[in-house]
Structure formats: structure tokens, C-alpha cells
């Protein structure tokens, strides 16, 4: 019962459905699922008011494993499904699981439009830079030259970057995290869940079968401090072992500097996730390994009117100005005449 749910604090376990999880052993998806359930529990999520939706792909099996309402739909269409759900019942919490193929290739259009409308949903884009469920073809985020079953001589498709796309689509909340950094992932998911409007999170996710080690540079003990930089609001971009390096702006371009020798934290780029202008967030989204450390955390979090609120606002104002619909009056509207 909802009243019980509201009173009794649920645990992550309570959000596990009865289904056996069927991802490959060692898949990064397990961690994402575990952190989402943890966040749902910690935020006091009411099960019956929550819907997990997805399209097609490995990531899209997600709804089967969460004991809320769920909808495993069709290739790339989950943002449109979520929009329909939110317009029918704006009170529902909607989580959307997608992947780099589902979200950026076959469903690219729907993703853009859900983001620009600012539908209040949480979009988790599991980026493993490969097609997993169809067994190993290159995806829209695979690097140029990537050798896969469908590109034995190397991919000739120029990749796109999920966060740059989201920012270009006017996203109000944009973040990145990594599957195995569970603490950071949990914190990021929590921020996303609290954000009003579309939250877009790219999660680096290892596919240990078809693209193992794709994010090794960002997760390896030896390399991760030099290859990632953790964003904090109003804090300078510092990274590297012992925080010895930073990102400085040189004109419109970021550059890596070593702290010391007259260069202090004050000279570095300070992160501001709340800027109305998305240029800084976009600049950060263009920082890629190996030239730069890749930013992790919240790139952008701004407030913008929410789509379903605007839709409902028009319904309410129509009721206010015209009165609640009277069917007989509607049918008889326009010119009528009487036949005796």
C-alpha cells in the first residue's frame, strides 16, 4: 500500500523485481542497476508512482529488473514513450535507460526532442561504445577506425559525443559518471533524480564481451587520476596525482597546466554548473582522452520550464477561462439551425 510505502523506508532490495538478471557476468550494467535501486531507496521513492522505461539493447532490459512499473519498448523510442506517460500522468517518476546505439542512433531524434522539451525524466545513457545485444557492431560513439564485426577494416563513421549532443539540445541537466565508481555514480544519480526537468547522464559502461576495456584509461588505477577530472561547482578544475595539474582557459580553449611555478588554483578554470549560457558545459563536453582528462560529474544544472507543467498549465487556464468542458455546448457550437 502506498501509505505503508510512504512510512516504511524501503531498501535497495525492495526495488529488485522477481526476474533473474540476465546481463553477461561482469557487465557494467549490474553496477548501474544496483546504484539506481540504492538511490530510489534513499530518496524515499514510492514504487507505484515510478516507471522505468527503455528501448532496445542490453541496457534496455533494465525495467524488467526494477520492481516498479516498467515498459520495455522498441528501438530508440523510449523518450517518446516517457513523454506520453508524463503527459498522461505528470505525477509519475520516470527513469529511462538507454544506450549509445538505442539513444543516439536509432532513437537520436526522440532523445533530442525529449531533452529540448525538458520533460521531467531521468535519462541514463549507458555508453559502452559498441552494439552489445546485436553482438558487436560499431556504435555512434565508437572511435574512428574501431574494428568490429561490421567494420573489420575499421569504422569510418565519425563518432559523436553524448554530452555535446545533449547540451546542443538545450539540456537543463547534464552529467557523466562511470559504472565502477559506485560512490560517484550514486551521488550523480541522486543529483539527477532531484533535478526538475530532463536529467541526462552519460554513464561509461564496460561491455566485457564485445568492447572490454574501452574505458580502461578512465578506470585503471594507474591512469585514472590523469585521465579524468572531477567537476565541482565553483571549484577549479584540478586533477592528476596529488592534484598537481589543472585546466586553464587560454582564450576560448582549455589547456593543461602544472600547478606551481607561479600558477595557482586561482588561474584555473572554475566550474559553474549553473551558468545560463551553455558554452562552458559544451567546452567541457569537448574535452576527450587522450588530449585531455575527461570531466566527470555535473556539467550543467539549470532551471527551465518543464514540458508537462506547460501542457497542464494550458489545460488549467483553458478550464479557468472557458469553464470545464460542457459536451452538449461543444457539439452545438458554431452555427446551428432548427428543423421543425
Amino acid at each position: 500500500m502506498s501509505s505503508d510505502n510512504a512510512m516504511v523506508q524501503l531498501t535497495a532490495k525492495d526495488f529488485a523485481s522477481s526476474q533473474d538478471v540476465r546481463w553477461c557476468p561482469g557487465c557494467g550494467d549490474y553496477s548501474i542497476l544496483a546504484q539506481v535501486k540504492k538511490v530510489m531507496a534513499s530518496l524515499g521513492t514510492i514504487k507505484e508512482n515510478t516507471v522505468c522505461v527503455s528501448g532496445i539493447g542490453c541496457s534496455s532490459r533494465f525495467p524488467y529488473y526494477v520492481d516498479t512499473y516498467g515498459f520495455h519498448s522498441i528501438h530508440g523510442r523510449a523518450p517518446a514513450l516517457a513523454t506520453g506517460i508524463k503527459l498522461a500522468n505528470p505525477e509519475l517518476n520516470v527513469w529511462l535507460a538507454t544506450g549509445d546505439g538505442d539513444g543516439l542512433s536509432i532513437g537520436g531524434n526522440h532523445l533530442l526532442h525529449a531533452i529540448r522539451r525538458n520533460v521531467d525524466i531521468n535519462i541514463l545513457l549507458f555508453n559502452n561504445r559498441i552494439y552489445g545485444l546485436t553482438k558487436g557492431q560499431y556504435s555512434p560513439t565508437s572511435p574512428l577506425g574501431k574494428k568490429t564485426k561490421s567494420s573489420p577494416m575499421g569504422s569510418v563513421d565519425f563518432p559523436l559525443h553524448p554530452l555535446s549532443v545533449a547540451i546542443g539540445a538545450e539540456a537543463s541537466f547534464v552529467a557523466r559518471s562511470i559504472d565502477i565508481n559506485t560512490k560517484h555514480l550514486t551521488a550523480t544519480l541522486e543529483r539527477a533524480a532531484r533535478h526538475k526537468g530532463t536529467s541526462f547522464i552519460e554513464i561509461y559502461q564496460n561491455c566485457n564481451i564485445f568492447n572490454d576495456g574501452a574505458f580502461e584509461y578512465a578506470t585503471g588505477k594507474e591512469t585514472k587520476e590523469d585521465t579524468t577530472v572531477f567537476l565541482e561547482h565553483n571549484r577549479p578544475l584540478v586533477f592528476g596525482k596529488d592534484g598537481s595539474k589543472g585546466i586553464r582557459l587560454n582564450g576560448m580553449s582549455p589547456e593543461i597546466v602544472t600547478l606551481g611555478n607561479g600558477i595557482t588554483e586561482d588561474d584555473l578554470l572554475f566550474h559553474d554548473e549553473a551558468l545560463a549560457e551553455p558554452s562552458l558545459a559544451y567546452l567541457l563536453s569537448r574535452m576527450h582522452y587522450p588530449e585531455f582528462p575527461e570531466p566527470m560529474g555535473v556539467f550543467r544544472a539549470v532551471e527551465r520550464p518543464i514540458f508537462e507543467d506547460l501542457v497542464m498549465g494550458q489545460v488549467h487556464s483553458a478550464v479557468k477561462s472557458k469553464g470545464k468542458g460542457d459536451l452538449a455546448a461543444l457539439l452545438a457550437s458554431g452555427e446551428t439551425w432548427k428543423v421543425n
Binding site: S73, R77, A80, L81, T83, G84, I85, A88, N89
Partner: peptide
């Protein structure tokens, strides 16, 4: 697809 979602949500 939005119609499928709205139907699922009860409209």
C-alpha cells in the same frame, strides 16, 4: 509511441 505511453498511464 507517445500514445502507447499515455494509454499505459491510463489516458
Amino acid at each position: 509511441v507517445s500514445v502507447v505511453g499515455a494509454a499505459y498511464a491510463g489516458a
